[in-house]
Design a protein around this nucleic acid. Structure first.
Lengths: 222, 222, 222, 222
DNA sequence: TATGAATGAGCCTTCATTCAT
DNA sequence: AATGAATGAAGGCTCATTCAT
């Protein structure tokens, strides 16, 4: 806590922010271990000591970068997803497909691509920052899918719902995490918007078909 | 002086072999950048220079480790998967479910867990070794799923088949790659065999339901 | 806290400077390959990383050391040599002998002995730095001798002048480069000032006699 | 000492010899410190351990290499030089010029060029092997020049003779040791036979003129 | 006799970090 | 508040050498 009258040190509009923005990109495409503080500082046009000055350590920089990336990139996006998944003016099929579509676009076509990268890195090689990410970023989006899926699960069993949600996310995740492999197998050079569109369509249809099929054999355990 | 009948001094388990086995484990849980050859050598009870002597460089060690891990861990496993997917004494549903089940068990319950880790690391941060892995390890297993799925796709469109295969793999991958996240969301402490079993059952059922559902609307393009 | 009037903390003699001065000596008597930056740093009371911080690499340190040694050790010396070789108030014989004498003293009796060593090392095992040394150090001194010799070459043929200059330098060089051999052959323990004086006298006389002899047979090609 | 009846182990005609021949070349153009035993062994198609097996250590290899090079390259060459310098059927001028010429050709145009390089390296950075080289190689050749020069020195003062000999050798040495510099100053691309010939002519003429000039002022001490 | 494997010291370099302004 | 200089630990790698056949 600063004294109330502190002359509001007027945080340099720049360095710290520049450091975060740069670090996000670098951490995203190199990973934590392969990222050097020197590289980040150079790209951010800051002194070598800047990271330690502003953040205390490389690790702290990483944590702060994740936090910053989250506050920067969620906002209305996630909120809109949640409200859509709860709209009662739509059929459950419309709601499911719409939710998947919105969820998927946010994932496959995210503007700042490093943001997704950063999240995925954290998911596959979790650090201490994972809890926060689950709570603030992944959790709410997961909940939106839960809402869209729930109406299809007769007894509302939470575990069953969750497995379905994971089936949806998994299908999409494949293309983010194993992108290079997928392209090789599909014999495509890269993910164009057309391919991304087709994938989203497929995932939505695949999922819908499966869930619609549940009713007729709801006797069988899932 | 050894006794003259010394049983062929029994070439010690082999520094080179020990190095590979150790490196596999370390690369798997630390990643390439965060792994030090000093650490690998110490664990393998070998000299610091051993890696460079046997493999030339850290990078070459990585490549050789991947290669070694593959030749070690595929063999009959993949072969059996391929033949099962082609059995014509089974209904297509039995074939699909059985193939998924076998594929999934190899993935979720793989004995040397570091093997999967190593593969996934390579999938998500590809190096030059990826091509080889796709050709020799991932490709054949992907093909098995293609065979099991194909009968459900009326026109046999390759792209459609592939997207279905990826939907299957994606569902399973989620639990490997985002395992930590999944556990947090499922509020489970760890992946026990029971949980793994339930997941496999779910994926098989989820997929079967979706594919069975295709018939009734086979006019729409997927 | 320093007193407010602290005399401009007097930038310590300068790690960088200390490194150069030390490196010069060590490179001079060990050669590039046999010199370790650890040794240089220790002698310069600097950290092992200091060389890389200040110069980027061992090789760069070498280049900078040569450059530094040159700017340090030429100055008026070379300038004075050039003006002397051009004095027109002297006979050509006086000019020749005087120039050789000055040139030789700079070579045989140079104060910082490592400077000559460094130059000679570079001459006999040239690196990329040689061009610079020729341009900035050896070239001008060579020119001075050219001026002193030229009056003796009737037709002023450049090549002939150059060969004479090299004959002069060669005679002196012998004692620097093959010093150890020379001492063994002369059965002297070391180069004392007396010996150096005698050598200089001899070279001057030897050369003068040869050049004076040119006139009487200037018809013969050299 | 081996037992007299040892089956004369019939030293492999190869490895050891090959090692020496290779080492000579490598030491010659890299210097001692920059030469690696591995490189030598690889080029000689021998095992890494071969040097230590045959010579005990890198240093011993160096010494043996020098010794080997000398016994290989002197022989009749030096002997012929000595007899020429003593021929009494020639005028002293003819003897001087002829001796210089022969000496120079052995030096500037030596067939195995690495041999000269090796000698010069040893001259400029002497090791323990220098004594042997002076005694067995340099010394005799120096003596030949002494004989050719002596007749010009009235009082036969040894020191005076030696200085003259060194003046001769120095002139030639310049082109071997400072070859790169000389070429730069002469603006020649490389030492062709024409240039070498011109240099030898010049040195012989330059020296002869100087010594002939001695007579007229033989009163002055040199 | 000769060699592939192995060793440990030490190389240059890079790292995150701290110091002294 | 911010930075250039400096640090020491460690990194990957190479070296001459020795070991065990």
């Amino acid at each position: 806590m600063r004294s109330r009258l502190a002359p509001l040190p007027r945080r340099d509009p720049g360095t710290r922010e520049r450091l975060l923005a740069t670090a996000a990109r670098v951490f995203a495409d190199r990973g934590y271990a392969a990222t050097t503080i020197r590289d980040v500082c150079k790209r951010a046009r800051a002194n070598v000591a800047a990271v330690n000055y502003h953040f205390g350590s490389k690790e702290q920089l990483y944590v702060e970068t994740l936090r910053w990336a989250m506050t920067l990139c969620q906002g209305e996006d996630t909120a809109e997803l949640l409200t859509f998944a709860a709209r009662d003016d739509l059929s459950r099929a419309e709601r499911l497909v719409g939710t998947i579509r919105r969820f998927a676009l946010g994932m496959l076509a995210a503007r700042p691509s490093w943001h997704q990268h950063l999240m995925f890195r954290e998911m596959t090689s979790p650090t201490l920052a994972l809890d926060r990410i689950v709570d603030e970023f992944l959790g709410p989006r997961f909940d939106a899918l839960r809402r869209a899926v729930a109406p299809y699960v007769a007894d509302g069993d939470r575990r069953t719902v969750d497995l379905h949600v994971m089936s949806i996310i998994g299908q999409l995740l494949y293309h983010k995490l194993a992108g290079a492999v997928a392209l090789r197998l599909l014999k495509e050079p890269s993910y164009g918007p057309a391919l991304a569109g087709r994938i989203v369509d497929h995932v939505a249809a695949f999922t819908l078909r499966s869930l619609e099929g549940r009713r007729r054999r709801s006797r069988r355990k899932d």
